[in-house]
């Protein structure tokens, strides 16, 4: 039984990773072929690093992900603190329901609905092309926020409610009590939420695809357009680097102690 279960786990992982393995193997291929391995070479890595479009797209993706994480971290923390203290049950429930919408809604609907809004707002103020870096940033913050909020809320619930009160009794202003007492308590939730926002933004293709403007391309968008033209092993090389980077990031996340909040989020009663 034990052995059988291990075989099963390995088999499924093998299937799950087959395309990733194919990608990694053929990124080291010496020829352009994607079905026959002709020999080991690093030429596609060389090409990827010398392709200014790949580098630009990679930079854009990173900038977008960092700004998204920072902004949704701040806004999400404020929102989580505010929601947890709302007196009106009705208001809190409806705000939480609205927060759930981007997580429940298919990405494609989120994407087209935001595109409608941006284009509509753009024509209102008379812009010829209203989609740009900023619209993409707004979209990324919007779909990341729910994950940030839902990873902070449980931490607030776990915190001793009397701590901020005690701080204020001892002379802290509400802001000081938040910064010195509450924030350190909920920090693991904030950090894991921001890391989540970062990875979500890094990987998003569908929503970006609909709100992308001319002149600002993220890596997933670039890959989508490049795949049609066939610079393929170069893309495999670029993505192999990303897989390794994500692996390192995942290991880091696992050491920042996100396990609880993350799992709660994943099984949130739907």
């Amino acid at each position: 039984m034990k052995i059988l279960s291990k075989i099963y786990i390995c088999l499924i992982f093998l299937l799950l990773y087959a395309p990733v393995i194919v990608m990694i193997i053929f990124s080291f291929n010496s020829s352009n072929s994607l079905s026959e391995f002709t020999g080991f070479s690093l030429r596609f890595y060389h090409e990827a690093f010398n392709n200014s479009k790949v580098i630009d797209a990679f930079k854009n993706t990173l900038i977008l992900a960092v700004v998204t994480a920072a902004f949704s971290g701040v806004l999400g923390t404020a929102a989580a603190v505010g929601i947890s203290r709302m007196k009106s049950k009705y208001l809190r429930k409806s705000l939480l329901s609205v927060t759930n919408i981007p997580m429940m809604n298919p990405d494609i609907v989120t994407g087209v609905s935001m595109m409608l809004l941006f284009v509509f707002a753009g024509t209102l103020i008379g812009l010829s092309s209203s989609l740009n870096f900023w619209t993409m940033l707004i979209a990324h913050i919007t779909f990341s926020l729910p994950y940030v909020i839902l990873s902070i809320l449980p931490k607030i619930k776990q915190m001793d409610k009397h701590l901020p009160e005690a701080a204020m009794d001892l002379g802290c202003t509400p802001l000081m009590s938040f910064l010195k007492v509450e924030l350190p308590c909920i920090l693991p939730g904030v950090v894991s939420g921001m890391l989540m926002a970062f990875t979500l933004s890094l990987d998003d293709f569908v929503i970006s695809y609909f709100v992308k403007g001319t002149g600002f391309e993220t890596l997933p968008i670039y890959i989508y357009s490049a795949v049609k033209k066939g610079v393929r092993p170069t893309l495999y090389a670029a993505n192999t680097i990303i897989v390794v980077a994500v692996l390192v990031l995942l290991i880091l996340i696992n050491f920042v102690g996100r396990d609880k909040s993350d799992k709660k989020l994943k099984t949130k009663g739907r």
């Binding site: 194919v22 993505n239 897989v243 290991i251």
Partner: peptide, 26 residues
């Protein structure tokens, strides 16, 4: 962690290499 890793590699390239695997000349 291994389960989550493919989730965070790009959807486009993942699907693409899957196609690469099962093509008639794949």
């Amino acid at each position: 962690m291994l389960t989550m890793l493919p989730m965070w590699t790009n959807l486009v390239i993942r699907t693409y290499s899957l196609g690469n695997l099962i093509e008639d000349t794949g």
